[in-house]
Design a protein around this nucleic acid. Structure first.
Lengths: 171, 171
DNA sequence: TTGCAACAGTTTCAAACGAAACTATCTTGT
DNA sequence: ACAAGATAGTTTCGTTTGAAACTGTTGCAA
């Protein structure tokens, strides 16, 4: 029996790693490329940043939310949300009024100006998304959706080393 | 014939957009979660950042490259590479010598210290990747690979609006 | 050759970032 | 009722970032 089968796992090479095949790297590069493109889109057309776009996206239905709600729904941290809101107040995209029952919470609503942007930006966003997945069949799109969902769940689990055993079923 | 079929596309709602279903958003959040986790891994164990890890990854085979080569292979920009190299010189992870034929180019090689990190970090990186794709079948992993490749190609094409028609077949 | 554009890499500057500290408000336990 | 702790949101501080300007080197053209 020849020793051929052991050649690949010889200990001289400590298991090759090609960056371009490494999933974290690939995800980072892809997300970066995409983000950069859409950011430029939003910036040049509406003068808003990605955090501002996300806030517009979650408030675009006309809902009223607190900053904390927004942070949760956009996966941004509260500092980022606070700063984005402050910019949006300056540019009259958002309306802030003190909560009645809880004065710590500020109730946030989009202004008509922001709603107009929303109406215009959503088709653009969807168009970009459509172009991005242009070469994918409907079935592939569904698979992608599924895989991303599962990867995110797994990544979340691996991100919280020991903590939050009980929070696991939050969803 | 009842008007039922027109209800979904009534113009009152300007096409809904749920952030959590929006591909650019999902990619961004996923890549962020993953990056943050591996960054913490590398930082606590070896005291290096992601840019430094990427440089170690491409030089880990023992190859000698210029800063520009590294920038291209890691998809980082030259500023980021320059700064990472400068940090690595300080911590004796990299060796820089002036090019002989072209004195603009600096030839970069890993020190034994960095090679030792490489030997130790690669299994960790692969282990994380394996854990991340734990719940995926071999077939699903292959599909994911394929989909990411195609999305990246498409994203690249959409990122360069009018330019680089001729560069399209560069790979 | 000399001058000029292209290139490699570094530095500068202003913006963006995250962690931690802080202010203000609300909740809970005694 | 009130102190102790939790929560909402802002501010501060040191670091990281990317674009543009800059330095030095090479290649090319007149």
């Amino acid at each position: 029996m020849p020793p051929v089968r052991r050649l690949r796992s010889a200990k001289a090479t400590p298991a090759a790693l090609h960056l371009t095949r490494f999933l974290p790297y690939r995800l980072s590069v892809l997300a970066n490329t995409v983000s950069h493109t859409v950011a430029k889109l939003y910036e040049t057309r509406f003068g808003i940043t990605i955090p501002e776009w996300r806030i517009i996206a979650v408030l675009g239905g006309g809902e009223t939310l607190s900053a904390g709600d927004i942070a949760r729904r956009t996966a941004m941290d509260k500092v980022q949300v606070s700063r984005a809101i402050s910019r949006m107040l300056d540019s009259a995209l958002i309306l802030r009024e003190s909560g009645d029952t809880d004065r710590r919470k500020a109730l946030l609503t989009l202004t008509p100006k922001a709603l107009a942007i929303y109406a215009e930006i959503v088709p653009m966003a969807l168009a970009y998304e459509a172009e991005l997945t242009d070469a994918l069949s409907d079935e592939e799109r569904a698979t992608l959706d599924q895989l991303l969902t599962r990867l995110q769940a797994r990544a979340d689990a691996l991100a919280a080393p020991a903590a939050a055993e009980t929070e696991a079923e939050e969803g």
